[in-house]
Design a protein around this nucleic acid. Sequence first.
DNA 1: ATATTATGAACGAACGATCATTCGAAACTA
DNA 2: TAGTTTCGAATGATCGTTCGTTCATAATAT
Lengths: 196, 196
Amino acid sequence: MARPPANVAPGQIREQIIVAALHLFTQRGYFNTSVPDMARTAQVSVGSIYHHFKDKEDVARALYLSLMEGMQSELAHIAANHATAAGRCRAVIAMLFELTESSREAMDFMLYAKHREFLPGERPVCSSQPFETMRDFVQQGMDRGEIRRMDVMVASASLFGGALRLITARLDGVLAEPLPDQLELVWECAWRSIAA
Amino acid sequence: MARPPANVAPGQIREQIIVAALHLFTQRGYFNTSVPDMARTAQVSVGSIYHHFKDKEDVARALYLSLMEGMQSELAHIAANHATAAGRCRAVIAMLFELTESSREAMDFMLYAKHREFLPGERPVCSSQPFETMRDFVQQGMDRGEIRRMDVMVASASLFGGALRLITARLDGVLAEPLPDQLELVWECAWRSIAA
DNA sequence: ATATTATGAACGAACGATCATTCGAAACTA
DNA sequence: TAGTTTCGAATGATCGTTCGTTCATAATAT
């Protein structure tokens, strides 16, 4: 068994390909991106992409799962550091706002891409693990009496809907100022809508 | 001058093609739909599609503009029948909820499709005319003292974000009950978030 | 009224371009 | 040397689009 070359870190080529894919997928979309495009941007050969991934779809899936995993670990970190639903949900919105500014493409691909069209079999975003965790936060807030009793889906949509909508506006270039500047205002509105 | 055959209404073929396109685009997506697919579903020939439309993109654009026009006229109707911002915005959410149930595919294509990927040159949804009209309703509500003074974009996102998020949940099949059943609850949350 | 011509809607096989994928050879590592 | 990684030209399939043709009807001529 030969090891990967020593002058490149293991997994580095995979990472280059995934980063290039993220860039192209968010810029032009999955279907407007050819595999040779990905090879050129990642500065590797077409054959190398097929050595590391089963096919084009497999690249998109690896990218998607990796981003979802990162998001889920952020949520776990928030759950560990905040006890109340208010604290947790506010931290979630703050995290989403900061991620939108610091990793614009990642947020675009996670929240805005139509995965069903190129990743058949994956569940829709709003029934993915991160979104379920966010609903858990809301449910626990209702159990603790912080949040008015109501349908959990409606409560979650009300609490996070405004922030998520602002994020898509920002990604579309309709919003000029950085999102974190609006955090206080957005959170006040969001919490008012469902607070007990 | 030859007229179209009398046994088919004028513009009926165009309509068949657009309806088929809406069905296929929402079901499989624009790029997973071939022109022969559209011809088969619309029960016309490929050549006929190219007789009525410049190209595949032109079909999508005609569909998009037609749906946007319908939405805009709904908003005009609401503006004419309601004086207050609260009345208007509540009517908007009610209308969106009803449209989601009665014209699921139309709502899916209008709100959920990534038009930028196949309709270059069209403005993003959230800066389209209907969305601007909705922001106007909010702005006027602030001028009238119904809504707290704040950034209009944030206020609009807070007011409509929850409803729009619930609509995508419904379109993704995550929500079981018809949306209009939740109207009262959703509106109460939405209005609380920004009411003066 | 009847025959003839003109018009453009509808058709679908065929074309050229592009795409995802393969594969045999070269390059490199251990 | 043996095993792995990289390469990119070649392949086969698919897609959007074109275009020569057919045909029903309207307009015109007889």
